[in-house]
Design a protein around this nucleic acid. Structure first.
Lengths: 144, 144
DNA sequence: GGCGATAGTTAGCAGTGCTAAGTATATTGG
DNA sequence: CCAATATACTTAGCACTGCTAACTATCGCC
């Protein structure tokens, strides 16, 4: 373990915490919590899936995701269909309202970050995007 | 607002959420919540300060930070000294145990991220560090 | 001295994480 | 084929962390 990796890990952690705190207020205006919004995004962009698979994608335990999906249903943002191949399971789908909510949240978030990203040139933007993609890829493959 | 910025904002948001969920479990072993740990880190690395200034640094409201600091005190990780220049205010200091806890959390976090960052070459590491620094700098100057 | 601003607390709510324990269905081994 | 085990999900209950509203105490200024 190099001091280099230590420093990078610390900075990533800190930057992630502060970035999320910044956007949190704007997401709050949607009336949907951050975890619910993130799960809904997965359904919209990654496609419908079972509760278990959604929980795995979000790195959260089953009961947590169960409650989140119950909230999404209550809010009319997702619905569950029976899984024809397994009567224990459901397939969770986003509703049209759910899709609209994800789009709206995305717009708000972008508006909030616009002021931040504005001063960056293309090279800098590309670096940020590359870094984010890199982190996501590492998390994906390093799935314990 | 370019589609480019939209895409970058989305990826940053998603990467931040998933990165934090990954490290959360390891931080849980400390017996200190993530917000408390982050506040304590600020005290350790950024120096003692008042509740208000700590809340501002963490982008959190006063009552939230008040409760967090109360918890840190109860756990023996921080203590408050009266501010000699203002009898309404306190200066929050980390205790030796608080410093040790931050160090331990840092070690655990690094161990957790080590497996992720291991496959990266120096160029990639530098890119991640640059991106994190960039985000922090933007958040700092864009302080509303 | 008094008035508005600032530092902090308390109470109470919502959201999100967890484990433990229970139900229902699937799968597997004898 | 039936019993044991494993899996999908729910419910209950706890902890942490965000918020606003309402309060107290002090500060700074006229």
């Amino acid at each position: 373990m190099t001091p280099r990796a230590r420093a990078v890990a610390d900075r990533l952690h800190s930057a992630a915490i502060h970035l999320l705190r910044r956007v949190r207020r704007h997401d709050a205006a949607l009336g949907v919590g951050p975890a619910a919004l993130s799960a809904l995004s997965v359904l919209v962009f990654g496609g419908p899936r079972s509760l278990s698979r959604l929980a795995a994608a979000e790195q959260v335990r089953l009961p947590t995701m169960s409650r989140i999906v119950a909230g999404l249903e209550r809010a009319g943002l997702a619905r569950r269909e029976p899984d024809p191949t397994d009567r224990r399971a459901f397939v969770i789908h986003p509703t049209p309202r759910g899709r609209a909510t994800v789009r709206r949240g995305r717009r708000r978030r972008v508006a909030a970050l616009a002021a931040l990203l504005a001063p960056l040139d293309h090279r800098r933007l590309a670096e940020l995007e590359g870094a984010a993609a890199c982190v996501e890829a590492l998390l994906e493959e390093g799935r314990d």
